[in-house]
């Protein structure tokens, strides 16, 4: 979870969680439903590109509703990590809590480019260039390294 590689999927700024997964699809225990409708209201061409993807978004990704289904939908769709200059704080916590790296880093996105990241060492690499990232707090690093908050507490109870 602390490091990975994927192809870039470029998104704009201020993407709210309603656009990640709409309110009308939330009421189910079947998480595949969220994958089936991820980004449906933003652009239906995004979903097919998410397997193995690193989402590179503009500022304030995940604003709006606290719905954790947004982070779960991305992880279940095969997203490896989300990179943005800033995140809405609830989405940021949610992503780390379910083991999906949310990385604060400002990079220029080229669709499909290879992106590598290493959170322990604190960098993102795109097109041969390394970018520094804003480090996670020690607690968040522990949570992410455990694979999420469920595993983190399982190991402690």
């Amino acid at each position: 979870m602390m490091q990975g590689i994927g192809h870039a999927v470029c998104l704009g700024q201020d993407i709210d969680t309603d656009l990640v997964i709409a309110g009308r699809y939330l009421r189910t225990k079947d998480h595949s439903q969220w994958v089936a409708h991820v980004f449906e209201d933003l652009d239906t061409s995004i979903a097919p590109r998410l397997k193995g993807a690193v989402i590179v978004a503009g500022k304030n990704f995940g604003c709006g509703s606290s719905r954790e289904q947004a982070a779960i939908a991305l992880r279940e769709a095969g997203v490896v990590a989300v990179i943005a200059p800033t995140f809405a704080r609830i989405f940021f916590r949610n992503a780390i809590n379910i083991g999906l790296p949310a990385i604060e880093c400002n990079i220029t996105c080229t669709e499909g480019q290879k992106i590598r990241f290493n959170l322990a060492d604190g960098w993102v690499e795109a097109e041969g260039k390394q970018y520094p990232i804003r480090p996670l707090s020690p607690r968040m690093q522990e949570i992410l390294a455990a694979g999420g908050l469920v595993n983190y507490w399982k190991a402690r109870s």
Partner: peptide, 17 residues
């Protein structure tokens, strides 16, 4: 506000960071 997993941990421990 928090998401569901943070809240589940609060149910469990009564605390959060």
């Amino acid at each position: 506000g928090v998401g569901a997993t943070d809240m589940a941990a609060i149910w469990l421990t009564g605390e959060t960071w």
